[in-house]
């Protein structure tokens, strides 16, 4: 990948994510997360599980900087996201790739432009990323649909576009919310292999899923949420580190 398109990597050596007694209370008074403490080591591969309404989405929102904690201290790449200035957030977000459960593609943009979005918001010239985007779209099986609009794609195809957008910038932290939920088993396996490849390249991967078979097969550490509290995680006590 071209040097100019590469995302700066977190090289501090400490935990890439550190939550200490983090809580989130929404405006309505609903407490979505309570006293959540954990650390994710840089370069780790983790699953996040839990029943619907357990607080998985809220935890992911904190991790991809769509939300700030109401209580406790949350750090990403060594930066306290509760007190980080608004101007600091874009640079942190550029180190994070997110696969949303509902894809969140821009409907008026082509498949190519949706995937190229992380480069375009950084004003990277088209010539610096066009080939990478084309290659990635071919790899996820959408090489023939680069000019298509999202509404003309199936759910599985849209999910692959969302995954391509999340990984195209080679992020340091990749967060995926049910990334295999809308694809067939073969594509699901390819997607997991892609995440493993990115993990091997040094990215920290966090996958939220209901697929317990996938979790068991992987043998990766699991964060389990129930009713807004972490109920399973090695080193659950504050300050303890996750098993790799």
């Amino acid at each position: 990948m071209n040097e100019k398109t590469r995302t700066p990597r977190y090289r501090d050596g400490g935990p890439i994510v550190r939550f200490d007694k983090v809580g989130v209370t929404y405006g309505s008074g609903t407490q979505a997360l309570r006293n959540v403490s954990f650390e994710l080591e840089s370069g780790g591969f983790y699953f996040l599980t839990g029943p619907s309404g357990a607080g998985k989405s809220t935890l992911l929102k904190l991790m991809y900087l769509a939300l700030r904690p109401s209580q406790g201290r949350a750090q990403l790449f060594g930066v306290d996201i509760g007190s980080a200035s608004r101007d600091d957030l874009p640079m942190l977000r550029r180190q994070i790739g997110v696969v949303f459960q509902d894809f969140r593609l821009l409907p008026h943009l082509s498949v190519f432009d949706n995937v190229a979005m992380p480069f375009r918001v950084r004003d990277v010239p088209l010539s610096h990323y066009a080939e990478d985007v084309d290659d990635l779209l071919r790899w996820v099986g959408l090489g023939g649909r680069i000019d298509a609009l999202p509404e003309t794609l199936s759910g599985g195809e849209q999910q692959r576009v969302a995954i391509a957008r999340a990984v195209v910038g080679k992020p340091s932290l990749l967060i995926a919310d049910e990334p295999t939920g809308n694809v067939d088993p073969e594509m699901g396996a390819r997607i997991i292999r892609l995440f493993i490849e990115l993990h091997k390249l040094g990215a920290t991967v966090v996958i939220a899923t209901h697929d317990l078979d996938l979790v068991r097969r992987s043998g990766a550490p699991v964060l389990q949420l129930e009713a807004g509290e972490l109920t399973q995680f090695p080193g659950l006590e504050p300050g303890a580190k996750a098993r790799r």
């Binding site: 874009p90 977000r93 969140r104 979005m117």
Partner: peptide
């Protein structure tokens, strides 16, 4: 707002 949120989440600055 939804499009703006997505742009922010992929790293767009307010100025962009």
């Amino acid at each position: 707002r939804e499009a703006v949120n997505i742009l922010h989440l992929v790293g767009a600055k307010d100025a962009f």
